[in-house]
Structures are given as structure tokens and as C-alpha cells.
């Protein structure tokens, strides 16, 4: 156990020091994408993997987070709130604002969407995200329609300007670590066990005294909040958002893929998934341009068919089996 802790501490230190040694911008960009991918996966996994509610609509939360952040930074009235704490609109507050908007939406949505279960839940969430897209396209007064929103000023956190890959690296690193810690904390508490019970058998969970609906809504809110953080970061990093960028089915699907490929229902799965898929897609992007998604899709299919527990789950199983064999050998000798 302690050894595990020291490994984790060591990796965090390495990640913190990394930008001191990496000057290659592309490599830094890769790391940023990986960390973002980890948040994608953790977010989806909390609801889809641990709670068993397979959503095809997480782009909705990503999108609301992205737009919430952009609005906060660009609208005069909202950004004043930020200015109280800072000389200009604060990006951290903006991201939190996006997250709170998402929580509000999911709170309202949660009371009805959980009438659905199984594949119907997937369809329902897909429809909700599409509705989000249509609204973003048409509610021009708020979203600027299909033209999207461009961030003109360089946001800065206190004295630190968010400029250059290194500053974004640290921002997303912190967000990612917080995300993993957050999910870890949920899963080791009462709530985590309740979510697992809901995933395994809703009716049994109810009979065991678990208020399943309330916990599903809580899981949805927490999961959506994490997606919104990712969306908020995306806004800052890219500096421009449009409905089709952030509300696209593609985003929802990517979250699912990272989780499934890495290992659904495990804390480390999305981490592994984000690393594997990001690296693979960046490599293949240089050969196939946009069509790199073929590799994405193929990998997903192979994983579902041949290692349904995901890459991390598979390796863990192998590792445990080996340890057992070695322990048995020890006893024998």
C-alpha cells in the first residue's frame, strides 16, 4: 500500500518537473491532450463505468462547460465577478462558472432522464446532447450561433499569463490530478459503494436501502461537472469554440472510447486509455490525417471483443495471475 503511495508521489513529481526538460512544443501538446483525455475518461467512467449508466451525451456537459467558460470571460456583466478578485476576468472562476451551469442543467435533467435505463438511457442522453447542439446553434444572443465565440484576451491566473504550452500544461495537470483524486474519494466512500450496487442491480440496491435515483442524479452531476471542467479548459486552450466543436457526438464517443479501451469501472483504466489512444491517434494522424479515427474505432472493437475488461484490466489480471504463480512456486521450493 505504501509502496503504491510512493509510486504515485514519484509520478506526480516527475510530471511537475517534466516541462523543465521538455522544450518540444509538440510533445507538451501531447501531454496536454493526454491529461485532458484522462479527465474525459474519469468523467464518463464515473457514470458509465462505476454506476453503469451508459451515456452517449456527455458532449452536452462538455459543451455547457465550454460555453459557460467562454461567456464568463467575454460577457461584460459576468466577467466583473472575476475582476473583483483579479485585474481581469479570472479563467479559474470562469471554468468553475461553467461547471456550476452544468450542475444546474444536470440537476434538472436528472429528475427525468433516469426514467430510462439500458440502451434507452443511451438514446435519451444522445438526444439531449443534440438538443444542446441545436440550441447553441440557434440561441444566437447567448452563443453567437454557428460563428462561435473567440477569446480575444489572453487569460491570466493572478500574475501568470495563460500563454504558451507550459502554462497550459500545469493548468491541465492540476485539473487532472484533482479529477482523479475526486473520483477516488467518491469511490472509497459510501457513495462509491452505492454506485457500484446500482450498476450491479438497481432493484437489489433499492431493496438494500439505497435511494438509487438520488445517487444516480448525484453521479450524473459529479460526472457532468468533470466534463464541464474539461470543456472549460478546452475553451481556454483553443481560444475559440463553436457548437459543432464542443457539442459533437464525437466528444461523447471519445470519452466512452478512452474508458472502454483503458478499462471500464477502474480508476486507472481511463488513464491508460487516454495515454494509449492519444499517442496512437497522434501518430496515425500524421499518416492518415483525419481518418486516424479508423484506428480508434478498430482498437475499440478489438478491445470489446478480446479484452472486455480493457487494457488496464487485462494487464492487471495477467499480473495477478503471475504473482499467484510465483507465490505458489515460492511455497513449493
Amino acid at each position: 500500500m505504501n509502496r503504491q503511495k510512493s509510486y504515485i508521489a514519484l509520478s506526480i513529481v516527475v510530471l511537475l518537473l517534466l516541462p523543465l526538460f521538455i522544450k518540444n512544443q509538440f510533445l507538451l501538446h501531447m501531454f496536454i491532450l493526454i491529461f485532458l483525455g484522462v479527465i474525459y475518461g474519469q468523467s464518463w467512467n464515473l457514470l458509465g463505468g462505476f454506476t453503469g449508466q451508459i451515456s452517449f451525451g456527455h458532449a452536452l456537459f462538455f459543451g455547457i462547460g465550454a460555453y459557460g467558460t467562454a461567456k464568463f470571460l467575454t460577457s461584460d456583466s459576468l466577467s466583473k465577478i472575476g475582476v473583483i478578485f483579479n485585474h481581469q476576468a479570472d479563467p479559474i472562476l470562469a471554468i468553475i462558472f461553467g461547471g456550476l451551469m452544468t450542475i444546474l442543467v444536470t440537476f434538472l435533467m436528472g429528475t427525468i432522464i433516469f426514467r430510462l435505463s439500458g440502451p434507452y438511457f443511451g438514446l435519451g442522453t444522445l438526444a439531449m446532447a443534440e438538443i444542446g447542439l441545436v440550441i447553441a446553434m440557434n440561441l444566437k444572443s447567448v452563443t453567437n450561433g454557428g460563428e462561435g465565440i473567440l477569446l480575444l484576451d489572453t487569460p491570466s491566473i493572478g500574475p501568470f499569463e495563460l500563454m504558451g504550452k507550459t502554462s497550459f500544461y500545469y493548468l491541465i495537470l492540476v485539473l487532472m490530478l484533482l479529477t482523479v483524486f475526486f473520483v477516488y474519494q467518491i469511490m472509497r466512500r459510501k457513495m462509491g459503494y452505492f454506485l457500484l450496487a446500482i450498476r450491479e442491480d438497481n432493484q437489489a440496491a433499492e431493496a438494500m436501502g439505497v435511494p438509487t435515483k438520488r445517487y444516480k442524479i448525484l453521479a450524473l452531476m459529479a460526472s457532468a461537472f468533470l466534463s464541464a471542467l474539461a470543456g472549460g479548459f478546452y475553451t481556454l486552450y483553443v481560444g475559440f469554440i463553436s457548437p459543432h466543436d464542443v457539442f459533437s457526438v464525437h466528444t461523447s464517443v471519445e470519452m466512452i472510447f478512452i474508458t472502454i479501451v483503458g478499462g471500464v469501472g477502474t480508476l486507472m483504466g481511463p488513464v491508460v486509455g487516454a495515454v494509449v489512444l492519444t499517442v496512437l491517434s497522434e501518430v496515425f494522424k500524421s499518416y492518415f490525417d483525419n481518418a486516424y479515427l479508423i484506428v480508434y474505432g478498430l482498437l475499440l472493437i478489438l478491445v470489446i471483443l478480446y479484452m472486455p475488461e480493457g487494457i488496464y484490466g487485462y494487464l492487471k489480471k495477467k499480473w495477478n495471475a503471475r504473482k499467484k504463480v510465483m507465490a505458489d512456486a515460492d511455497v513449493a521450493s
Partner: peptide, 9 residues
């Protein structure tokens, strides 16, 4: 439950 409902995993 008559038809058992364990949390299998």
C-alpha cells in the same frame, strides 16, 4: 428475492 439478485462483480 426469489430469483436471486447478487451484485455479481
Amino acid at each position: 428475492f426469489q430469483i436471486v439478485k447478487p451484485l455479481r462483480n
